[in-house]
């Protein structure tokens, strides 16, 4: 493995010359950038430019055709197995279980993550996103906005060092968007790393660093 250079606390994600190709489609040819603790990295680009694909590669769900991605935690490169304990993801293509209710969903994710005081943390997260009263309704009966809130709660459940957000404000009401923006700022302020893929003008203002993908 190529070392990525040691850094201070928090999670740093650097990616160099990353490319992804499917059989009949080139998603992007070469993208580089870096997400550092305490800052929000914004990925923008028109539809089909590969924002979600890049996000999937950065969180380790997809193998790039070429290029290198490094996850560095507190100065050490993290192993794949350990990496998943440090990130939370909200993305349109990643759903929670529709047959379960909000509480069951969170409890399940807490359990497979091996968390201890799970129930209390689940309630906290539901309260945070404003779903505490609807926690016993199956997700199937949720509106898209409520489902989005639950996905955010799921991503925050284990208090991750890195948060990946793919169009997080979609389907949220103005109040929800406002809350989310402030919350993300708060996370960055305490040294968390945030990667945000969006085309929303307001959301783009959350971040200091920008990576723009060509169409």
């Amino acid at each position: 493995m190529v070392s990525c250079g040691a850094m201070a606390d928090g999670v740093r994600i650097s990616f160099t010359d990353v490319a992804k190709r499917y059989d009949l489609r080139v998603v992007f040819r070469s993208v580089s950038g870096e997400a550092v603790p305490g800052e929000v990295l914004v990925i923008t680009g028109p539809n089909g430019s590969g924002k979600s694909t890049l996000l999937a590669i950065l969180c380790g769900l997809l193998r790039p055709t070429r290029g290198m991605v490094c996850h560095v935690l507190n100065g050490d490169e993290t192993a794949r197995e350990e990496w998943r304990n440090h990130l939370g993801v909200v993305a349109p293509a990643m759903s929670v279980y529709e047959e379960l209710d909000a509480m069951e969903n969170l409890r399940f994710f807490a359990r497979v993550r091996g968390m201890n005081d799970a129930d209390q943390r689940c309630h906290e997260c539901l309260e945070l996103v404003g779903l505490e009263t609807d926690r016993r309704t199956p997700v199937r009966g949720y509106s898209t906005g409520m489902a989005q809130r639950l996905k955010i709660a799921q991503a925050l459940l284990h208090d991750p060092e890195v948060l990946f957000l793919d169009e997080p404000g979609s389907n949220l009401d103005p109040a929800g968007k406002g809350w989310l923006g402030e919350y993300v700022h708060g996370l960055a302020a305490v040294g968390k790393t945030v990667v945000l893929a969006t085309n929303d003008r307001d959301e783009m203002k959350w971040g200091q660093n920008h990576v723009t993908l060509a169409g």
Partner: peptide, 16 residues
């Protein structure tokens, strides 16, 4: 099909 696999992949250990 219900797009729940990615979150499960990120949350649980493969062996589990």
């Amino acid at each position: 099909e219900s797009h729940t696999a990615p979150l499960l992949r990120l949350a649980a250990s493969p062996t589990a």
